[in-house]
Nucleic acid binder design. Sequence first.
DNA 1: TTGTAGGCGTTATCAG
DNA 2: CTGATAACGCCTACAA
Lengths: 343, 343
Amino acid sequence: MKRRVTLKDIARETGVHVSTVSRALDPVTRKAITAEVAEKIQAAAERLGYRPNRIAAGLRTNRTMTVGVMIPDITNVIFPPILRGIESVLEPLGYASIIVNTDGEKERESRLVNVLRDRGVDGIIHAAATRDDPMVARAAEDGMPIVTLNRRVEDGAIPFVINDEQSGICQMLRHLMELGHRSIAHIAGPQDLSTGQLRLAAFRDAMAETKLACDERLIATATHFDESEGARCVEQLLASGLRFTAVLCANDRLALGAIERLHEKGLNCPADVSVSGFNDMPFLNLIRPRLTTIHIEQHGAGQAAARLLVQLLNDAETDRLPTETVLPVRLVVRESTGPAPAP
Amino acid sequence: MKRRVTLKDIARETGVHVSTVSRALDPVTRKAITAEVAEKIQAAAERLGYRPNRIAAGLRTNRTMTVGVMIPDITNVIFPPILRGIESVLEPLGYASIIVNTDGEKERESRLVNVLRDRGVDGIIHAAATRDDPMVARAAEDGMPIVTLNRRVEDGAIPFVINDEQSGICQMLRHLMELGHRSIAHIAGPQDLSTGQLRLAAFRDAMAETKLACDERLIATATHFDESEGARCVEQLLASGLRFTAVLCANDRLALGAIERLHEKGLNCPADVSVSGFNDMPFLNLIRPRLTTIHIEQHGAGQAAARLLVQLLNDAETDRLPTETVLPVRLVVRESTGPAPAP
DNA sequence: TTGTAGGCGTTATCAG
DNA sequence: CTGATAACGCCTACAA
């Protein structure tokens, strides 16, 4: 293992003191150094192949230029674009990120928060927050800059970036009604996640506004945002014996699972039942029937969260910062929704 | 920002010297300490909420317990499972990983290698290696432990983990022949990537063995492993005017693109043309027609690479280590391949 | 403008 | 078994 070139090496090489070298190599302190000397030092640094040791600098300055990113599960296709969004703003600024998967397990989540703290991350982007998490709240209280993404934790004033769930649900409901649907079921997401909760609340509100009776029995609540729960919930709705011509699902995976199960039961989508999703995850255009859904800015959400965190990291006065950012959403009509069948 | 508890705080609290505290808290050096004292120290550590500062430790020991993971693009669904595989072995061992996306750009790749070196990663898992990369080779020469995954770099003795490309291509070709296909085209991957190259070579070899004439004009080479190149290549094959009843593609995305374009041209898959992929990426079972492909152990490959790297990190004698690991693959027959149509 | 010195939190090496 | 001391590489008052 070849030894790394350090400031000391350059100092020896150029005959000046380490501190001078340090200054010459830092663009902001360089101006306090004779141009000539500075150039000589830079040349030597280049020649020797000097690379600053961020670990040492981090120990000294208490800034590692590293941020932690917590997500439920990287194999969930919704997250990679978000990560690229985060990276796109953080990387140019010299930050690296440590990504951890919580698998939606609270215990794991708490443990990982500590892992990140131990590693001295400058801040955390938390895209896997449950509505209440003591460790996260504690970390925030201890002064760790934290931003949540897609989710929000209830107590505490942790800034967050979310999508306009309300508007999304509204747009979708309007779309279904324009197609003539009047009996509309909802497959709600897990209620311990803010998205699940917000979308359900939005559904109830929107239904109320339409003056359609919102039959509570036409709401099935999933325990996870996945296909099997979508299947289970639609089956539960079917079992209720109540008639419905459309199912508005709290996310795409629930919708996919629902469509599959409907198909197994001999019900065609969208001819017999229209089904809609939420998120517009990648690959949806390859899957038949192509799912009507609400598009959210995945990459943009990552960027927004990262920018917010960077502000938190730099500004001493964390007071006057947008504590909540709501990103716009957009209805994407594809093939899984169609005219309501005649009664 | 609440100040962190350090060894010094515990020392003050318990009235012993920092070095004693350090020893008492390290499971391996603890045995050299009076049980009584050790317990007192541990209790104090617990009470004060001590968390070791890995940065400081890293500076001292030259081990950051961090590894770099380089991939082309996290939004490519093939990579998340690999990352989970890596994490599954690294995390329990106390390692964290810094993931970077090269986007297949050589310049970016080189830069990122340096980013990782600057951060003092203990080693690198490189799943985005081009067949030759000077920076990677140089890092390896400088003593940075590196393992490549899915790809291999040509010169240098960098250990690698790959899939059994040869066997996969063979199995697929046999499958197609059993279905009666005799005119089989190949959409090859980029030749600057080892997978592209190995799979093309395997195709040629396998064709030679079957004693079927391997018409070079029935081989189209993609510049990228993506859908649009699959579409372009199949169109090129069509344009040649040569008859073919099956297209063996170097990966799933090329196959998906090819099927789509065939469909646009009025050719049905598999009725008119059979198409096969390679990789068995996630979601394939949701996409119609369900693609026949070669399954590779994505999660397992990540694990294998991580284990290999850990060995490199621990064993002084890096000599007697498996320099190449070849993972088994498996034919998965679904719907995109069928009997050859009558001539 | 440049050098000096001290310290960030740990761990390794000596003594005692 | 425990304490003292130095060092890892860098940054930053403060002094010159």
